[in-house]
């Protein structure tokens, strides 16, 4: 378990992380979202025992990271931002080095390094110097490094940043495969990623935790959530009126209006689902519904709502 309590980090006068508290349980993939400079990296570095907090406490599996970073780090696999690696080493030499650091000696060390090379699909590049690797292989090598001692906690700082869509997919699949029985904290500003692999999402902005929720719940906060778009064969005026009479509908907007077909947008009063009532209304009047779309909510809308309001709030304050 990760326990973070009232974590604060100041760099001179700038407060990079401002009173952040949260807990993460085993089996969770936590997506750490936020715009650039929000404080994601700084928070993760404090959990990893690299930066000391200005105040507050961090515990990993019951070990106080500030008091005993060495013991805590044995529980953690950490992939820093921008994939720093010893460029002149080969993949194999690098992973052997890390296996040795992580406490494997002799034949054990080689076995462990080989197992990780297999698991992370690095066999084809094992003798290559790291500086000659493509970005995708480089990222996988760094990911392999985090796994070598089978840690309970993985901290991944922007694991898919700068990869092409195929490479991203590979890295994501690897993360998903590792997710059981571990805690994974990954930072990103790619929202689709959070939807794809995270079971929990936190949004941080200007060093403060703004949202802590499940990706599905978060989407419901989107402005357009459950807005219904309906295409129906019906007379224009009657359709407008009939749908507006549904109790949960706040507003009906005509998107296009032909002599036969109407395209309408139904905005719910309070994010309720409107599909069932809309179909009832249409079938009662024997109107043919040719298309029906409910807005599932978009994370980037929520993200923008949260992180921009915050900006504006500061300006007016």
């Amino acid at each position: 378990m990760i326990k973070v309590e009232h974590l604060v980090k100041k760099f001179g006068l700038r407060t990079a992380v401002n009173d952040v508290s949260f807990r993460v349980e085993k089996g969770t993939v936590l997506g750490f979202l936020g715009p650039n400079g929000a404080g994601k990296t700084t928070t993760i570095r404090m959990i990893a025992g690299y930066l000391p907090p200005t105040s507050g406490a961090v515990e990993v599996n019951g070990i106080d990271v500030v008091a005993d970073p060495v013991a805590a780090q044995k529980q953690i696999g950490y992939m820093p931002e921008n994939t720093p690696l010893y460029d002149e080493m080969t993949v194999e030499a690098f992973l052997n080095f890390l296996a040795e650091i992580r406490g494997f000696a002799g034949a054990d060390r080689r076995r462990q390094a080989d197992a990780i090379i297999d698991k992370c699909m690095l066999s084809s590049v094992r003798h290559q110097p790291i500086e000659t690797l493509s970005k995708g292989y480089r990222r996988r090598t760094c990911l392999a490094q985090t796994l070598i001692h089978d840690p309970a906690v993985l901290l991944l700082d922007e694991p898919t940043e700068g990869l092409d869509p195929n490479q991203k997919q590979v890295v994501r699949e690897m993360i998903e495969r590792m997710a059981q029985n571990k805690i994974i904290v990954l930072s990103t500003h790619v929202l689709e990623e959070v939807e794809a692999i995270c079971s929990r999402v936190m949004i941080i902005s200007e060093g403060r935790l703004q949202v802590d929720s499940r990706p599905g719940d978060l989407k419901k906060r989107a402005g357009g959530y459950n807005t219904l778009t309906i295409e129906v064969v019906a007379p224009a005026a009657e359709a407008l009126q009939a749908f507006a009479e549904i109790p949960d509908v706040a507003e009906v907007v005509s998107l296009s209006s032909g002599s036969e077909k109407q395209v309408l947008r139904l905005v719910p009063k309070d994010r309720q689902s409107l599909a069932v009532r809309a179909i009832e209304v249409a079938s009662a009047r024997r109107w043919l519904v040719t298309e029906l779309r409910s807005d599932p909510g978009r994370l980037d809308d929520v993200f923008r709502q949260i992180t921009i309001t915050d900006d504006v709030g500061r300006k007016t304050a």
Binding site: R45, G49, V70, Q73, Y78, P80, P84, Y86, I101, R102
Partner: peptide
């Protein structure tokens, strides 16, 4: 320069 110092000091090396 390479940033590996962060890697080194987060793998329980002092």
């Amino acid at each position: 320069r390479q940033g590996t110092i962060e890697l080194l000091f987060t793998t329980s090396v002092t």
